[in-house]
């Protein structure tokens, strides 16, 4: 589906306004720029962190509707964040979309087995990311 169609669709509920917050954990600023732009266009509120530890800290302190999590993060990587989140009762059911440059089946299996809600391989289409976030947040 084209991005323009995705963005022009009205979220379910029909008001066109959302209070859903999405946290992006990604250390590549140019990728963050696009993700932030399209998610905001799709009426999400977006926050960004650049490492795994910061992601966990924000998730435990604030309320988010979903996490977009890059696997190759400096320090604590995406798999570590996924594990810690799933062991935390408050975050056990948080929708987590894993983003990674690793497209191998074994990595996808590892992420899904680790509790990821969805898995998207780089390079990805923005339309796909928006569709996944909407699906998982019920918007």
């Amino acid at each position: 589906m084209r991005l323009s169609h995705i963005l022009s669709e009205k979220p379910e509920g029909g008001t066109g306004l959302s209070s859903q917050r999405i946290l992006i954990a990604e250390d590549e600023p140019n990728i963050v720029e696009s993700l932030r732009f399209i998610l905001e266009r799709a009426r999400f509120e977006v926050d960004v962190v650049a490492n795994g530890a910061a992601a966990l800290e924000r998730l435990r302190r604030e309320r988010f509707s979903a996490l977009i999590l890059d696997i190759m993060l400096p320090g604590m990587d995406g798999f570590d964040v996924l594990r810690a989140a799933r062991e935390d009762r408050a975050l056990a059911s948080l929708p987590i979309i894993v983003l990674t440059a690793k497209g191998q089946a074994s990595d996808r299996d590892a992420a899904m087995a680790g509790g990821a809600s969805a898995y998207i391989t780089k390079p990805f289409s923005n339309a796909e990311v928006v569709a996944q976030v909407r699906k998982l947040t019920g918007m």
């Binding site: 323009s4 963005l7 590549e28 720029e33 696009s34 266009r41 390079p123 339309a127």
Partner: peptide, 23 residues
């Protein structure tokens, strides 16, 4: 290197998708 290339390709393709599709 492959990781860096994929990262750049992702940034380019995401930006291009926005440039080409957001009216």
């Amino acid at each position: 290197s492959v990781h860096r290339m994929l990262t750049s390709v992702t940034a380019i393709s995401s930006a291009a998708e926005i440039l080409g599709n957001v009216d």
